[in-house]
């Protein structure tokens, strides 16, 4: 059993013009999926990252540059993650298939390297 990171890119956003009723519906879909992972004992944890105010640090030859970002306008911004226990990538993919995020954005799965 290994832990897999589900990295959720950009979203859910683009919801500026949906009704309160539909917003609740979207939340409930995520919640149902999260609850099902939890009940199956698969969920290790999940967190949302703050949209703005990040810092990007780059070092080269002792020089460190620090810039603000990445910004939410960036296409490849990680909005948050779920950490999930699964036996294989195949199982991880199966678990991710129910995630409503796939209707709104990209989901990337990476295994945590536990071969210390």
């Amino acid at each position: 059993m290994a832990t897999y990171m589900f990295l959720l890119y950009n979203g859910p956003d683009d919801f500026d013009n949906i009704s309160p009723e539909d917003m609740q519906g979207v939340i409930e879909r995520y919640k149902a999926w999260g609850d099902s992972l939890e009940k199956a004992g698969k969920l290790v944890g999940s967190n949302k990252l703050v949209d703005e105010e990040g810092r990007v640090m780059r070092g080269r030859g002792g020089n460190i540059t620090i810039t603000d970002g990445p910004f939410s306008e960036t296409k490849e911004l990680i909005g948050g993650y779920f950490a999930v226990n699964a036996a294989s990538y195949e199982e991880a993919v199966e678990l991710a298939k129910g995630c409503p995020h796939l209707d709104y954005g990209t989901l990337e799965i990476r295994a945590i390297d536990e071969d210390h």
Binding site: S46, N47, K48, Y81, P100
Partner: peptide
């Protein structure tokens, strides 16, 4: 109000209700 609901929409999927 729309902004408040949007914040819930952005956060609750990860942090739970």
């Amino acid at each position: 109000v729309q902004d408040a609901l949007l914040q819930a929409l952005r956060r609750w999927p990860f942090h739970g209700v």
